[in-house]
Amino acid sequence: MSGYVVFGATVLAGVLLFLAAMVARRLLAPRAVTASGTTTYESGVDPIGSGWAQVRVRYVVFAFLYVIFAVDAVYLFPWALVLREEHLGPVSLVEIGVFVGILLVGLAHAARRGLLRWL
Rank of each mutant, 00 (worst) to 15 (best):
R84A: 08
E85I: 14
P78G: 10
L76K: 11
Y66A: 07
L65T: 02
A63D: 01
D46E: 11
Q54D: 06
A32W: 01
R58W: 08
T39M: 02
T34V: 05
R58Q: 09
V71H: 02
T40G: 13
A32I: 03
L83I: 02
E86N: 01
G51C: 01
P78K: 09
R56F: 13
F62L: 09
V71K: 00
S50I: 06
R56W: 13
V61S: 02
L76A: 13
F69V: 15
T40M: 15
Y66K: 14
S50H: 03
T38M: 10
L65A: 10
G37P: 02
L83W: 00
A53N: 14
V67A: 12
P47K: 07
V74R: 02
A53P: 14
V60N: 07
Y59E: 01
L65M: 13
P47W: 04
L28C: 02
T38E: 04
G44T: 05
G49P: 05
T40D: 15
G49C: 07
E85M: 10
A63F: 05
W79K: 11
D46Q: 06
P30E: 07
F69P: 12
P47G: 00
R31Q: 14
A32P: 00
V60E: 06
V82M: 03
I68R: 08
R58T: 08
Q54I: 11
V57R: 00
G49T: 03
Q54V: 11
G51D: 11
T38G: 00
E85Q: 13
W52G: 15
G44K: 13
V61D: 06
R84E: 12
G44H: 09
A70Y: 08
V74T: 10
G44F: 09
A63C: 13
S50R: 03
T40C: 12
D72P: 00
A29G: 09
D46Y: 05
R56N: 09
F62K: 09
G44C: 06
G37L: 08
F77H: 14
Y41W: 10
V33I: 14
H87S: 04
Y66W: 10
I48F: 10
T39K: 09
V45T: 15
R56A: 07
V33A: 12
A73P: 09
A32F: 01
L83E: 04
L28V: 01
E42M: 11
G49Y: 09
A53T: 13
W79Q: 15
T40W: 14
G51N: 07
F77N: 13
P78H: 09
S50Q: 01
V67N: 12
T34C: 02
A53S: 13
L81R: 05
F69A: 15
S36E: 12
A80W: 04
L28T: 05
L27D: 06
L28W: 02
A53D: 13
R58E: 11
A63T: 04
R31Y: 07
R31P: 14
T40H: 15
E42K: 11
V71F: 00
A80I: 11
Y66I: 01
V67D: 14
P47R: 03
F77S: 11
A80M: 08
H87Y: 09
S50G: 08
A80V: 07
A70R: 13
V74Y: 04
A70G: 08
I68P: 04
A32H: 07
T39H: 11
L83V: 02
S43I: 14
